[in-house]
Amino acid sequence: MHALELQRPILERVAAGEPGAAKECLDRFGGLVWSLARRLCRNATEAEDAVQEIFVDLWKSAPRFDASIASETTFVAMIARRRLIDRTRRRARRPVEATLTEATPVSAAPTDTPPVSEEAALAANAFEQLRPEQKRVLSLAIRNGQSHEQIASTTGLPLGTVKTHARRGLIKLRQILADQGFDFGEAHDRVAADERSGDGATDGTKDRVS
């Protein structure tokens, strides 16, 4: 666990109304939130607006943080991602930046960049255990912020297949993390059952929503 996280979490202090904690949170997570916004917003102006909304959201959501479920870093990233996804849906367009092509290798993280939380390190490891097609779809969805439809367009895969890869990949990822002690507060027995019933799907024929 990150050394700083051995202290009382900032979010708990924000929730308790401790003076200065909200701005300490801004100092600590500003770079993370700004990086997420810059990556998933179309331009700097939009990113600035988004970051402002995210920190107000975070301030309001702080009482929901539970250190026994996830690290602060992961919780902050979750709040930020939700807001960024909401904004993207509102403007009915998806950010398309540095779209991966067939030839683009999918790596877990830049080699000189240490993961910022223990969960992230485990997620990087778990990601490498996914099927190549699941990795590709999840990378486009998470790193590039593409919608399922955009991924279908980018990759030429049927929409149902994209949804299947995305869902099964994420379910598998969660199962691997749960097996390593990070179940994010939810038992995974049903997930394991679901995985046994059809992890190997490679098309959309099993996907009711497709």
Binding site: V116, S117, L122, L170
Partner: peptide, 11 residues
């Protein structure tokens, strides 16, 4: 949370 952790790993 799982997606957020993966995002942190891929970023």
């Amino acid at each position: 949370l799982c997606a957020a952790a993966l995002d942190l790993a891929l970023s």
